[in-house]
């Protein structure tokens, strides 16, 4: 059971790495729903830069950090697909490490009584115990 769960996690992680590392370079380059709505009223050139008019997107300010992986690229790598894929792989591993590690640290240990109210016991008692 325990081994099967880790097998499932490993396959899911592999799928995520493929999506972020390979499929991501085939993603649409158009602005997303939020960004495009904020550009309403402005003219935008082929490169996606606001060139004129009046819209909220003009107020966009610099990011506080930026960093080498800013905008899902890798500074120094000019090949778009490679840069996007690499930053995607880093992002998936980093997110898994932070989220998985964090959740693992705060998890309820086996046999530990819950200190909270009664509904805590319900999901574990009805499920197959791993």
């Amino acid at each position: 059971m325990r081994k099967r769960t880790w097998g499932f996690i490993a396959s899911g992680l592999l799928v995520s790495l493929l999506l972020a590392g390979v499929v991501s370079s085939f993603a649409s380059a158009d602005p997303d729903g939020l960004e495009s709505a904020l550009r309403e009223g402005c003219t935008v050139d082929a490169a996606g830069t606001v060139t004129g008019g009046d819209c909220p997107a003009q107020r966009e300010a610099e990011h506080e950090i930026g960093g080498p992986l800013a905008d899902y690229g890798v500074s120094g790598i000019t090949d778009d697909a490679l840069a996007t894929g690499l930053s995607g792989v880093v992002g998936v591993l980093l997110t898994f490490a932070l989220a998985g590690g964090g959740f693992w640290l705060v998890r309820r240990r086996a046999g530990q009584q819950t200190t909270q109210d009664g509904d805590a016991a319900q999901p574990t008692s009805t499920a197959g115990v791993g």
């Binding site: 799928v15 999506l19 898994f96 490490a97 590690g101 959740f103 693992w104 998890r107």
Partner: peptide
């Protein structure tokens, strides 16, 4: 659930 939640975030 802890590793599954990590996977969900990464996915």
């Amino acid at each position: 659930l802890a590793p599954m939640a990590g996977l969900v975030a990464a996915f």
